[in-house]
Design a protein around this nucleic acid. Structure first.
Lengths: 127, 127
DNA sequence: TCCTAATTGAGAACTGTTTTCGATTAGGAT
DNA sequence: ATCCTAATCGAAAACAGTTCTCAATTAGGA
């Protein structure tokens, strides 16, 4: 993969943002590099997530998000403020083996997204 | 909710199909009822899933699917044949309580989709 | 410095879904 | 049975997120 200015700018944006969407990355990079195209942002995000440099998260009810934390694989998503944060779920350790034995299904990967209310939002009024 | 011909036809289609997408429901209903609109299919599927009559599943990398099985909440999705099937994951029983205590996050719901290869596809050639 | 495959920007295209709006209809009230 | 009206409908446009096309540019090895 060529080492373009665009890729560097996107990596920097990913470091600066927390679980950003492609559009949020675009907005951030666009500030310092107005000529960048949205297609380039999507292309580079896809490329580096395929290579395992970042995680590509599919969040229910919205745009995909990208995560520079490679070890924690599960997420909490607040339905009110929209914030996404990482969470460990050791309960699922070894689940691949059990499903393989019981269902014959070979798990390549999985994602778990909990939707709900974060501790900041839970006491706020409903509307 | 009014009891329209369209709703009845969609309920019948949901019974006949296995984890269909909205488009698959539309195709099925459209056969016996050619004048139905896709907007109506989406509207009715959303309505009855909000009322809890069916589950609305958000599957990675593709269209949402609908499930008439209300008790099993998790799914296996084969990346080769596209089939989606139900699976129990008792490992997650009580997870809401732990996450609430440790993170202060109040889980409203979650879905877990395992991607991989089903037992039929696992021995097939890659391409 | 040259060459070429990789990458880019702009915008069209695409997929899945929702919205708009005027026309139709279910089903309770009369 | 008929009327009334809110609920629903069909068609098509709008929408969001993402991918594709293609001509122009560029990184980086020869």
């Amino acid at each position: 993969m060529k080492n373009t200015i665009q890729k560097t700018a996107i990596m920097n944006a990913l470091m600066a943002l927390d679980h950003p969407t492609a559009d949020e990355v675009y907005e951030c990079v666009h500030n310092e590099f107005p000529s960048i195209s949205k297609a380039t942002v999507y292309r580079i995000l896809n490329r580096i997530s395929e290579e395992g440099e970042i995680l590509h998260l599919q969040i229910p009810d919205g745009a995909d998000r990208f995560d520079t934390t490679l070890c924690a694989h599960h997420h909490l998503k607040c339905n009110k403020c929209g914030k996404v944060c990482d969470v460990d779920v050791p309960e699922l350790d070894g689940i691949e083996k059990r499903i393989k034995e019981e269902n014959g299904f070979s798990i390549g990967g999985y994602r778990l997204v909990f939707s709900g209310l974060c501790s900041d939002c839970i006491f706020k009024k409903s509307d």
